[in-house]
């Protein structure tokens, strides 16, 4: 019973983190049709920013997380302004290569300052809760609660505020949004900012039970891509559902099959899905 519960908890934790990263990725894709390969690097920078604020400046975990969210949001906006915006009319291969350029740059910069060692991030939530024989590490609980809170906040922002609804409008139709007077540039920057912030929060939530290192974004970004392909590129609910599917698949697959190969599960899933549905699992039939 306890073992099963641990796997469920584990699946939820993974799904929550993947969900936050995938949400940012899918938002950007929905608006700008860019598969942002640099998103994993933003996630990594988020972790290092929090690490820096906590260990070097001695700030509290929550403050560090907020600041890190701000830093990465600004960074993401810069990427949009300086890189993706000038490339908006270029052939589709160009923005992908540019994204790779950003990714390589960010990793190299972080490596220059912190080296490629693995670092541990402390968290004030190192304790363990026990309920009737069930063991719940506090940080995991925090991740799940935190992620769901953020998702809810994002949902409310997109559905209930004017600013948020412009994002939805633009995701549905770029020209339509233009016609009703939405400033596409502002929406694009806003979208990037949100996606960067979510990535930084995800990284800061996850880092205490994982490690902080320059290549930490690689696996996460690839899994986020698997998720948004699974859930339909640009779809918000799809990203959350996809993240949960992948989180549980990894958790149970890693436990019952092989923990060595658990990372391969995600990619095998992608290969299988795309082999049968070239535009993703939940993609609409159109176009």
């Amino acid at each position: 019973m306890n073992l099963l519960f641990q796997q469920v908890l584990n699946g939820l934790t993974l799904g929550s983190i993947y969900g936050l990263v995938a949400l940012g990725l899918t938002l950007v894709y929905g608006i700008l049709h860019i598969p942002n390969f640099a998103h994993g690097a933003l996630y990594m920078v988020g972790a290092f920013a929090s690490y820096f604020f906590m260990t070097d400046l001695g700030l509290h975990y929550w403050i560090a997380m907020l600041l890190s969210g701000g830093v990465v949001a600004v960074l993401a906006m810069l990427c949009e302004r300086l890189v993706f915006h000038p490339l908006r009319n270029a052939p589709p291969i160009h923005d992908k290569i540019a994204a790779i350029g950003i990714l390589l740059f960010l990793e190299a910069v972080v490596q220059m300052f912190w080296g490629s060692d693995f670092r541990r991030m402390a968290s004030p939530f190192g304790g363990i809760l026990r309920f009737d024989g069930l063991i719940i590490p506090e940080q995991r609980l925090l991740i799940i609660v935190g992620a769901f809170t953020l998702m809810l906040a994002l949902h409310l922002f997109l559905r209930k505020t004017m600013l948020g609804s412009t994002i939805i409008a633009m995701a549905q139709s770029r020209e339509g949004a233009f016609l009703v007077g939405i400033d596409a540039n502002r929406v694009a920057m806003l979208t990037f900012a949100i996606s960067g912030m979510l990535a930084a929060f995800a990284a800061t939530l996850y880092a205490p039970i994982n490690l902080v290192y320059p290549a930490m974004g690689h696996l996460v970004i690839m899994k986020a891509f698997v998720i948004i392909v699974l859930g339909g590129m640009g779809s918000i609910p799809g990203a959350i559902v996809g993240a949960m599917i992948l989180g549980f698949a990894e958790s149970f697959g890693g436990f019952y099959l092989s923990s060595d190969y658990k990372d391969i599960i995600a990619f095998s899933l992608l290969v299988v899905i795309l082999s049968f549905r070239p535009t993703g699992l939940f993609a609409k039939g159109a176009h």
């Binding site: 300086l82 890189v83 290569i97 540019a98 790779i100 350029g101 950003i102 990714l103 390589l104 740059f105 960010l106 190299a108 910069v109 220059m112």
Partner: peptide, 8 residues
């Protein structure tokens, strides 16, 4: 650090 921005 140099080639990344150069690519962009």
């Amino acid at each position: 650090v140099i080639f990344g921005p150069l690519i962009v």
